[in-house]
């Protein structure tokens, strides 16, 4: 690990122009929960795929530039900040921790994620939160079409507009949208904002550093009509 340059006892700068991505991920994945090397800065990412995937230690990782596909995938406890944009599959299957992208995220951000918090300061492209299973996602800009497709659990907050077919084939999960929704997907409907919803939304907005208030949002959720097969629909198959 010759290119890993220790600036202080616990801060590490890793230059992806000088060192292999695999050694970065191996080093991050080998960190134990009690490591002292708690602050990692990754420079020259140049859109590389799979940066900081599978990290299980509660360390802070800052990526200085644009990340490629699957950045911070399977994250379990780390706090990952991207000072740039992220490609497809940001924080895919995250278990816990926080992933914060300061720019835009490409499609399928937070896909299948079970837990943790994903904050997208810019826009999210199509299929944000597809099949999400418990993650909290806050998009400060707009989210693309088919967001929260088949979402099962968790919360998706969109401070801008949502694209076509929001929440299509939704199981559960709370969707909160401040702006316009181009169209709702099958079995997704507007819901009354309960006191519990407001509490959850308010906490998420605060965590993500948003100034919006829960009253500005509309809550969407599952109409639960696709939970069971209806024999009247048999002719459609």
């Amino acid at each position: 690990m010759s290119a890993v340059h220790k600036t202080t006892e616990d801060a590490v700068i890793f230059d992806l122009a000088a060192e292999e991505l695999r050694s970065l991920n191996a080093a991050l994945q080998a960190l134990g929960g009690k490591t002292n090397r708690t602050a990692w800065t990754i420079v020259n990412p140049r859109g590389a795929h799979a940066i900081a995937v599978g990290v299980t230690a509660p360390v802070a990782i800052t990526i200085e530039g644009h990340a490629g596909y699957y950045c911070a995938g399977m994250n379990d406890g780390a706090f990952v900040t991207i000072n740039g944009n992220a490609g497809t599959g940001l924080a895919e299957n995250m278990m816990s921790g926080t992933v914060h992208v300061k720019g835009d995220a490409s499609q399928s951000a937070g896909a299948t994620a079970h837990g943790g918090l994903l904050i997208i300061d810019g826009n999210a492209a199509a299929r944000c939160g597809i099949s999400m299973k418990g993650v909290d996602i806050v998009v400060k800009g707009n989210a693309g079409h088919m967001s929260a497709f088949m979402a099962q659990s968790g919360n998706l907050v969109i401070c801008g507009d949502a694209g076509e077919a929001l929440g299509d084939s939704l199981y559960e999960a709370r969707l909160f949208v401040k702006g316009a929704v181009k169209s709702l997907g099958a079995d997704c409907e507007g819901k009354e904002m309960t006191a519990e919803d407001k509490e959850i939304l308010s906490a998420l907005l605060q965590k993500a550093g948003c100034h919006e208030t829960p009253e500005e949002f509309t809550r969407y959720g599952s109409a639960r009509t696709l939970y069971h097969f209806h024999v009247d629909n048999a002719g459609a198959y």
Binding site: G68, G87, D104, A125, G144
Partner: peptide, 22 residues
């Protein structure tokens, strides 16, 4: 197709980057 292809272009750090809408 991916940002990697653009990473070496002159002035890319200050470029307006966007994903074309479907």
């Amino acid at each position: 197709s991916e940002y990697r292809a653009l990473a070496d272009l002159p002035g890319i750090e200050a470029a307006h980057l966007f994903e074309p809408e479907p």
